[in-house]
Design a protein around this nucleic acid. Sequence first.
DNA 1: ATGGGGCTTCCCACCATGGGAAGGTCAACC
DNA 2: GGTTGACCTTCCCATGGTGGGAAGCCCCAT
Lengths: 155, 155
Amino acid sequence: MNIGEAASASGITAKMIRYYESVDLIPPAGRTEAGYRTYDGRDVGTLRFIRRARDFGMPMDRVKLLVGLWQDKDRPSREVKAVALRQVAELEAKIAELTAMKDALAELAGACRGDNRPDCPILRDLADVSSTASHPGAVLRAGMRGQRFVGNGPA
Amino acid sequence: MNIGEAASASGITAKMIRYYESVDLIPPAGRTEAGYRTYDGRDVGTLRFIRRARDFGMPMDRVKLLVGLWQDKDRPSREVKAVALRQVAELEAKIAELTAMKDALAELAGACRGDNRPDCPILRDLADVSSTASHPGAVLRAGMRGQRFVGNGPA
DNA sequence: ATGGGGCTTCCCACCATGGGAAGGTCAACC
DNA sequence: GGTTGACCTTCCCATGGTGGGAAGCCCCAT
């Protein structure tokens, strides 16, 4: 199998397969004499596994960890569960943040008439010197440095 | 006011203030003879406004738009509200995605005993060839290309 | 033998942010 | 007046995953 076939079989672009190889998420593929990468069914299985893990919003580190556990037939399920629960906890934290943002902003928007007059509580709030501490992002800025792990939606 | 003072007064790092200037989110600051940037109370107000808008998870584009509306005293509040509601809608979409991920993963984790035995439904699911379509990320991958706008939590 | 589609590597861009180096400036203190 | 240390300047680099694209090689079918 060439990389293109492996890509369509696994749902991961050829570009990303090469990238995963370059960051040691997957071992270097075999090569033909001409230098083309070759893949077999097992490789596609691994790629699919990776795609699924990414679908749960996991960062590469976590995926790598999980692939390792998957390939170790004697892992205790305890370890796998711990990884999964960490991910769940981070997702929950992110959801809570976004919800706080959303609620605060929706409330402001609800208070805005949305007509032709310029007067607007949304802008008033954003410009307001006094309400600094109670804003959703204050917490965010304080507590969530470098969480990444959600970003764009895996693509 | 030097950039450092403006930074602590506004809650935006000096580094980011320079960056915002470089991408034309804010106009170039005045300079002393020695080349130091200078800021006044109005500038700090603008920076604070920007920080608040970012706290709602808005991407730079949206913030820029909002700053423009803020500075135009004759804007119709309709336009401001529309921007806010777009942001709310995107936050809701993101929340829905993350919730789908979280629920699916939590369910799997719930089915895993988490003991010393290797058997684990989480890994079984990730490796499962058949369940491709029903996974949370399938939707994600299909529908959310290039949404960005949440990323790390503004920092 | 020629064309088109695949493969290779390498570089660039995104977005918002932080880190750090190399060098200039300012203010305070002795 | 000189030294010190805190601040400022610009410039480059890294992050994380992903896409885009160029330049060049390879393979197969016509």
